[in-house]
Simulated assay, not measured.
Amino acid sequence: MALFSNPQHAVVVLTFASLLYSRTWEESVNFARERALDTRIYVPEILDASNYLSDNEIADRVSQFSEQVKNAVNILTNKDCLFHAMTRFPGFFSCSGVVFVSQKMGQYVKNIFNILTRDVETIKAKERSGGIDYHLLKDGNICENRFVLGKIILRTLLYRNTAERGSIKAEEDDKMQVTNPPQKSVIKEIPQHSDKNVNEKRILKDNNHVKPNKGSKQVKLLVIQFEINCSTLGG
């Protein structure tokens, strides 16, 4: 809702998410500048990234956006705030019921963004292993929730083309299969001559290292019986 009401520059949103993701201010700004053009699909919520913003402008806008996000939380806890925000969506009022979260939970969510509402240039990165600590997440650790939220935002904005990457991988797999086709069993017919000049055709496979089983013994007996019958007819 904060983005819908107040679209932001791509660098601002990526810096916002990177700071949540436990990066330093310098790391977040550099990362945002490098990847800003990858968010072009999210217009009009994400503004054109071609316009340059100074570090001070980014810092001010990140703090302002953080306040807007905190204010947007009110629509989840307050009926009047929800109805006011939904006036731009006429179809919303035909809904039969709405569900709200508690004021306590709403305040907890707001606290996640407090760190970004002032002095964002001084934020220190927290040392992490890179993975999610699900025990801390379950316990409601605010730093862990902040980290996971930043991770979700970045993945949503930057890694949206999963299907495209999948199709590219499939094409690469197809090429690999053409280059190295799977080995298939080749059936050959080899004439065999008995003492009675009886031609026997046996089917052989390239991979003939299979251990004999009951079925193969039965086949062998049938072949022997076939040879005996042919010998008798020949006599």
Score class of each variant (00 low, 15 high):
residue 119 D to R: 10
residue 111 N to L: 01
residue 229 N to D: 08
residue 43 V to G: 14
residue 168 I to Y: 09
residue 44 P to H: 00
residue 228 I to M: 08
residue 9 H to G: 05
residue 208 N to E: 04
residue 56 N to R: 12
residue 50 S to M: 13
residue 115 I to Y: 07
residue 1 M to Q: 15
residue 33 R to K: 11
residue 153 I to L: 02
residue 48 D to P: 12
residue 196 K to Q: 14
residue 224 I to D: 14
residue 120 V to H: 04
residue 175 K to D: 15
residue 113 F to K: 05
residue 163 A to I: 13
residue 61 R to Y: 13
residue 213 N to L: 03
residue 208 N to P: 08
residue 101 V to K: 04
residue 13 V to S: 07
residue 203 I to W: 12
residue 223 V to Q: 13
residue 149 L to I: 00
residue 92 F to Y: 15
residue 199 N to L: 02
residue 17 A to R: 03
residue 96 S to Q: 12
residue 204 L to M: 04
residue 197 N to R: 06
residue 56 N to T: 13
residue 209 H to L: 06
residue 60 D to K: 15
residue 189 E to K: 09
residue 144 E to M: 07
residue 102 S to E: 03
residue 53 L to W: 07
residue 31 F to N: 06
residue 40 R to K: 13
residue 141 N to E: 09
residue 154 L to A: 02
residue 186 V to L: 06
residue 192 Q to L: 09
residue 67 E to W: 12
residue 51 N to G: 08
residue 150 G to L: 05
residue 88 R to F: 09
residue 235 G to W: 04
residue 206 D to T: 11
residue 20 L to M: 08
residue 82 L to G: 01
residue 200 E to L: 15
residue 17 A to P: 12
residue 145 N to G: 08
residue 199 N to D: 09
residue 89 F to E: 14
residue 164 E to K: 08
residue 84 H to C: 09
residue 86 M to F: 08
residue 26 E to V: 07
residue 41 I to W: 08
residue 80 D to G: 02
residue 98 V to K: 05
residue 232 T to S: 09
residue 210 V to R: 11
residue 34 E to R: 11
residue 138 K to P: 03
residue 144 E to H: 08
residue 166 G to R: 09
residue 186 V to M: 05
residue 108 Y to T: 09
residue 9 H to K: 07
residue 189 E to S: 09
residue 56 N to I: 15
residue 7 P to I: 00
residue 128 R to V: 07
residue 14 L to C: 06
residue 43 V to A: 13
residue 172 E to L: 08
residue 233 L to M: 05
residue 84 H to A: 15
residue 138 K to Q: 10
residue 157 L to N: 06
residue 160 R to D: 11
residue 93 F to S: 07
residue 1 M to H: 11
residue 114 N to A: 05
residue 193 H to N: 11
residue 130 G to D: 11
residue 25 W to H: 01
residue 208 N to A: 03
residue 184 K to G: 06
residue 159 Y to T: 03
residue 33 R to I: 11
residue 90 P to R: 05
residue 104 K to E: 09
residue 108 Y to A: 03
residue 185 S to V: 13
residue 214 K to V: 08
residue 45 E to S: 09
residue 5 S to F: 11
residue 119 D to H: 12
residue 24 T to D: 01
residue 169 K to A: 15
residue 103 Q to L: 06
residue 68 Q to C: 05
residue 70 K to V: 08
residue 226 F to W: 04
residue 221 L to N: 13
residue 143 C to M: 06
residue 71 N to L: 06
residue 213 N to F: 06
residue 55 D to G: 01
residue 181 P to D: 02
residue 60 D to P: 00
residue 142 I to W: 10
residue 39 T to Y: 02
residue 119 D to L: 01
residue 217 K to T: 04
residue 89 F to A: 02
residue 153 I to S: 02
residue 200 E to P: 01
residue 101 V to Y: 04
residue 160 R to I: 11
residue 38 D to L: 10
residue 231 S to G: 05
residue 63 S to G: 04
residue 33 R to V: 15
residue 181 P to N: 00
residue 138 K to C: 10
residue 143 C to D: 15
residue 13 V to R: 09
residue 164 E to L: 14
residue 201 K to W: 06
residue 121 E to G: 00
residue 136 L to W: 07
residue 85 A to N: 14
residue 234 G to V: 07
